[in-house]
């Protein structure tokens, strides 16, 4: 399958009163059609900003974004508007992401109205079809979001994203606000839709078990930079970056026979404002040397399709 999205050296800086915040710093990746790139990281690591920058919902600072082989880095407002039909966003919070004054029908029909797609009965048919696709019963057509539970609200958000028949969807923590049993229903829905309609996803989350389940490749972010990227299963079987290892060991496993290597990482995320010329993980890394504290590591392909950004990746892993 061909490549749908490619991002090269993408940077997004914000000017804050305290200095320049490096939300996304020099990240490159590509996603093939019909595949899912999982983006994991802790809160404040820039993963949501990455998703929105790729969607061109916020302006990037530097780098290039390609969509369907076309450079969309510097497109006009009009082209960006047209692009909305092809790329969409699903939000984390099914409460604040739905306008409380609109009923389900109007919420789902909103994108169609914006683009003047379909009229009258045709539009109505499309809305009902979308509701059917995401598993929303017709009896909720004129319900308001506050009358529905989190899972159903998230289904509305998904239907709204599907309305314009996009090819590429960024899911920003779509199941984090939901209970486990509902979370599983929504994950299944997203996977089924991908199979039926051939979507390509970026799946942003902090939940590693979810990301393993749904992704083809996983990109691990730490304070704006990519520390590791590899096929999903490989990342869990053979994590190479010390941060990834720490992150994986920190997940509580619902299995009492699971013996885990205890790597409790000390400290917390350092500030992404005016970062120094160093490996950003150096402050928390048990293997950090002077080299790490003076030089930014480059990304290297350690195994096929397995990228790591660490000075000492080979020594640490004995390869």
């Amino acid at each position: 399958m061909g490549e749908l999205v490619r991002v090269e050296h993408l940077k997004k800086y914000f000017n804050t009163p305290a200095g320049v915040l490096h939300a996304v710093d020099d990240i490159s990746f590509s996603i093939n059609k019909g595949e899912t790139l999982g983006v994991v990281g802790e809160s404040g690591c820039g993963k949501s900003t990455l998703g929105r920058t790729v969607l061109k919902l916020i302006d990037h600072t530097d780098g290039k974004i390609f969509f369907e082989g076309k450079d969309i880095t510097n497109i006009s407002k009009r082209e960006n508007h047209e692009l909305r039909k092809k790329m969409q966003l699903i939000f984390q919070d099914p409460y604040s992401s739905l306008n409380p004054r609109l009923c389900v029908y109007d919420l789902i029909a909103d994108p169609l109205k914006t683009f003047h797609i379909l009229k009258g009965e045709e539009r109505q048919k499309r809305v009902f079809q979308l509701m059917d696709e995401v598993g929303l019963s017709k009896r909720f057509t004129y319900s308001y979001p506050h009358e529905l539970d989190g899972g159903r609200r998230q289904r509305i958000g998904i239907a709204r994203a599907l309305a314009l028949k996009p090819k590429f969807i960024v899911c920003d923590e779509p199941v984090s606000a939901l209970d486990v049993s509902i979370q599983a229903q929504i994950l299944n829905l997203l996977q089924d839709l991908q199979k039926q309609l051939g979507f390509t996803y970026i799946f942003v989350t902090h939940d590693l078990s979810v990301v393993r389940h749904i992704s083809t490749d996983i990109l691990v972010m730490y304070i704006g930079v990519m520390v590791e990227k590899s096929p999903a299963k490989e990342l869990f079987e053979r994590p190479l970056h010390p941060y990834t290892k720490g992150l994986l060991s920190a997940i509580p496993i619902p299995n009492i026979h699971h013996k885990k290597k205890e790597i409790v990482m000390a400290g917390e995320l350092t500030s992404p404002i005016n970062p120094k010329q160093e490996c950003r993980f150096a402050a928390r890394c048990p293997f950090a040397t002077d080299l790490c504290r003076t030089q930014v590591p480059t990304v290297s392909e350690v195994f096929p399709n397995h990228f790591v950004s660490c000075h000492h990746v080979r020594e640490i892993n004995g390869i």
Partner: peptide, 24 residues
């Protein structure tokens, strides 16, 4: 049992999760 089946696993490959149907 349903709760356990709803959880995506970190070491086993499950093609589809088996959530508890319906709502609380």
């Amino acid at each position: 049992i349903g709760l356990f089946k709803s959880l995506p696993s970190l070491d086993k490959d499950v093609e589809r999760l088996s959530p508890i149907k319906g709502l609380m």
